[in-house]
Design a protein around this nucleic acid. Sequence first.
DNA 1: GGAGCGATGTCCT
DNA 2: GGACATCGCTCCG
Length: 209
Amino acid sequence: MSRIARPYRNVVSVLPRSFYEHAPDIVARALLGKLVVRELERESLVGRIVEVEAYFGREDPAAHSYVGRTARNAVLFGPPGFAYVYFIYGMYYCLNVSCEPDGQAGGVLIRALEPVEGLAAMARLRKLPPNPKPQLLTSGPGRLCQALDITRAAHNGVDVTSAASCLRIESDNYSPDEIEVTPRIGIRHAADLLARFVIAGNKFVSRGG
DNA sequence: GGAGCGATGTCCT
DNA sequence: GGACATCGCTCCG
């Protein structure tokens, strides 16, 4: 029996805004292995980032920012380190983090987490029976938003660099051994661009893990 | 285990 | 009106 209840929190700190002030592919790679922390009323839900995709600004036909600034995508054009949450296929939400300096569009889509803390609550939020296969909780962009109760109304524009935020990204100084790079998934335009980054061999990536 | 498909709301043309 | 950075279910092997 360990005296340390939550060893992954030995040295945990929220990532500063400067972490996100770079090109989306740079930030995407760097986000692998970091922790998404979602504070509920009574408990914390935590997952480790194992799969991400970079979406570039005005030059990327697959990016929401390609068409220029609109009401929906405004967060992508704002300062770095803010959550961009959008509603897709009439049913699901997807979580991104804005990057690049203020005024320049760019973002990173969080596609899969390895669940770390709060698995029972995640299963309830996903409306799954108790003790499901953990891969069903947070492997996939729609799934992880459901498991962490992330919605556009509550979380679009939230500052993920604030320690006081109910949705933030932290580091416990873990860094993945090997990173795999592939084309992005589920898009029509620029489908050949190598902008998807996964922790090699991780069982919680959304496909082919 | 993989291909096919329907569900379903919002945004921009 | 059409597209959509998805998912879970069926059917088929």
